[in-house]
Nucleic acid binder design. Structure first.
Length: 309
RNA sequence: GGCCAAGUAGCUCAGUCGGUAGAGCAGAUGACUGAAAAUCAUCGUGUCGGCGGUUCAAUUCCGUCCUUGGCCA
């Protein structure tokens, strides 16, 4: 039962045409699409995340899009549970095209996460409060005392905080997980391959133009209204609203930047994201790359066909 | 035309009581195991508006010119 599932990751930076390619392949091979984009999980964040339209979703089965409601915030651990629950429901057609540009989640799905339960809200809040009271130096000192092997930077509040959560909740050292291979049992249990879309360094300008056109389209489609509706509901500090496009729109709505500055600000932030995504994927030698501007659909189809057979 | 500000990194601005200058943002590179489109690390020579003067030494003081704002005519 398990072995009949085959997974094809479709990865790459934002605005590279992943969704379009995945839809093409899903139709061609009578497969399904599962989202692995960290913003497209959320209900109501469609325009700014360039989520597939309703019409596109009708053309092939789409899963794990728009299914998390504010103010819930997604985690990689929760995503993996949702993913396997979905597969085990038996309704997903193979081949499964897992589409998105969030390297962290892709890694989590492929390699698995450390096998830890959720940390309670009490402990999470306690750590946030302690940060306020004691400051980052003392918080880092607490970690370093407990786990001398930690390679975290003292300024990386988020990761230091997480390491302290694991310490206080379970008395465990994250640095130890790295060496013990504790993640192996959570690895993706299906055969998989990865195809990616990206652009050559020389084409950065060209890609930026493409991104800018997309920014203008988002503004046209109503990213401002989309953002405003979350603000009026009081979700100002909801983490996904700090993602690219929404953060800049929020700045505009809060009168920190002008309407004239908004398009360039979104494009600039998007390019920064693109760079980080490229950096993330660069070290993954298993990805079979294709060029954004000249995607060889026939070649990709043949590669997928070979993999499925 | 007169008076008053301001002119320093791609941008916004600090600063030098005279010893050739540094933050944030942007940019480049990288890290990444339950917020990840987040978070974090490393990287800073620029005629200090132009030209003169004073001085051992001027981006800093003085003069003058140019540019941009504001006020007054």
């Amino acid at each position: 039962m398990i072995s009949k599932n085959k997974v094809i990751f479709v990865v790459g930076p934002t605005a590279s045409g992943k969704s379009e390619l995945a839809l093409h392949l899903a139709k061609k091979f009578n497969g399904s699409i599962i989202n692995i984009d960290s913003v497209q999980f959320y209900e109501g964040l469609n325009i700014g995340s360039a989520a597939p339209s309703e019409e596109e979703k009708k053309q092939a089965p789409h899963y794990l899009f728009s299914y998390v409601k504010a103010p819930v915030e997604m985690t990689a651990g929760q995503y993996i549970r949702d993913f396997y629950e979905l597969i085990e429901s038996g309704k997903v057609n193979s081949p499964i095209f897992v589409v998105g540009g969030t390297g962290f989640y892709i890694q989590a799905l492929e390699k698995g996460m450390y096998d830890l339960p959720e940390v309670s809200e009490e402990i999470k809040n306690e750590i946030l409060a302690d940060y306020e009271i004691f400051g980052s130096e003392k918080m880092y000192a607490e970690l370093k005392n407990f786990d001398a092997e930690t390679e975290l930077h003292p300024n990386d509040h988020y990761r230091v905080g997480r390491a302290l959560e694991v310490k206080r909740a379970f008395n465990l050292k994250i640095s130890e997980f790295k060496n013990t291979g504790a993640d192996n049992k959570n690895k993706l249990p299906y055969p998989s391959m990865k195809i990616g879309l990206t652009y050559q360094t020389d084409d950065k300008e060209k890609f930026m133009n493409r991104v800018h056109q997309r920014t203008l389209k988002m503004l046209d489609q109503g990213i401002i209204e989309e953002t405003k509706s979350f603000l009026t509901q009081g979700y100002e500090s909801w983490a996904p609203l700090s993602s690219v496009g929404y953060l800049e729109t929020k700045s505009y709505l809060q009168e920190q930047i002008s309407r004239e500055e908004l398009p360039a600000a979104i494009t600039q932030a998007t390019m920064k994201l693109v760079k980080k995504q490229k950096t993330w994927f660069k070290r993954d030698e298993a990805i079979l790359w294709s060029d954004v501007f000249t995607p060889q659909y026939e070649v990709i189809e043949r590669t997928v066909q070979d993999f499925i057979d």
